[in-house]
């Protein structure tokens, strides 16, 4: 993991609220950091048509969430629910993240898996 590269990439990240979202998911890591994200999803017939996010917190979390949003667009909800932590980390180039930052990087996926209402 190249921290500097990630920190630089952050400047390009755009956080915004998706106006026509039909699913809004909130996730947080309250224990010692207080970081939080909100995922805005437009899901139709099990397909994620569009997505965006807002939130505050460390840059690993912001980076991971923006990559997550990028990754899920156009995909099947079921496919994302089946995505393993390891696969996700590999997908977003954070496979070698330190143990203490895992919770930051995994929060978007965790939020999606745990908070998405089961239909």
């Amino acid at each position: 993991m190249d921290l500097i590269k990630i920190l630089k990439a952050l400047k390009l990240i755009k956080k915004h609220k998706l106006k026509d979202a039909n699913v809004v998911l909130y996730g947080s890591n309250p224990y010692h950091c207080g970081d939080n994200i909100t995922l805005y999803l437009k899901i139709e017939n099990g397909i994620i048509k569009d997505a965006s996010f807002e939130g505050t917190g460390c840059n690993i979390l912001m980076y991971a969430t923006s990559k997550f949003i990028e990754h899920i667009k156009g995909k099947n909800v079921k496919e994302i629910l089946e995505l393993s932590d390891r696969e996700f980390l590999k997908e977003i180039d954070l496979a070698d993240i330190s143990k203490s930052r895992l919770q930051c990087a995994l929060l978007p996926l965790k939020t999606f898996k745990e908070k998405l209402p089961r239909i």
Partner: peptide, 13 residues
């Protein structure tokens, strides 16, 4: 512009 955790992680390197 840099979250405290990221500063600490950079310093750890």
């Amino acid at each position: 512009g840099i979250h405290a955790h990221d500063v600490a992680e950079y310093l750890n390197y």
